[in-house]
């Protein structure tokens, strides 16, 4: 069982969270080239070792957070609220404050 330190709620069991994948992916502008969209949607670094990734505290505060985790040892070295753009979307669509 991973124990994820939610920046809003404190340390909680992994089973309260949903996984959100690689947090280093930057989605391009809507009118960006097909190549840029292809790379953002499909290609992944898939590192063996430290990985920056998104988790959502779905059965808790429902916030998206960014976790630094090692994909071999599962050691978690940090967790912070997800990026400002993400928080913006949550606020706009779900009226969730991420302060």
């Amino acid at each position: 069982m991973l124990r994820i330190p939610c920046p809003y709620c404190g340390v909680r069991d992994q089973s309260e969270f949903d996984y959100g994948g690689d947090a280093t992916v930057n989605y391009p502008a809507l009118d960006a080239s097909e190549q840029e969209w292809f790379e953002a949607v499909y290609l992944r670094d898939d590192p063996k070792g430290p990985h920056t990734e998104l988790w959502r505290h779905a059965r808790g505060c429902r916030m998206w957070i960014i976790v630094e985790r090692n994909t071999v040892t599962h050691e978690i070295t940090g967790a912070r609220p997800a990026n400002p753009a993400h928080a913006e979307v949550l606020k706009r669509d779900f009226e969730l404050e991420t302060t």
Partner: peptide, 19 residues
């Protein structure tokens, strides 16, 4: 299991794969 690692090592670049 390690395709993305080997592909990146070989100069193929990133693959549409996660482990």
């Amino acid at each position: 299991g390690h395709s993305n690692r080997v592909a990146q090592m070989a100069g193929v670049g990133r693959l549409p794969i996660e482990a």
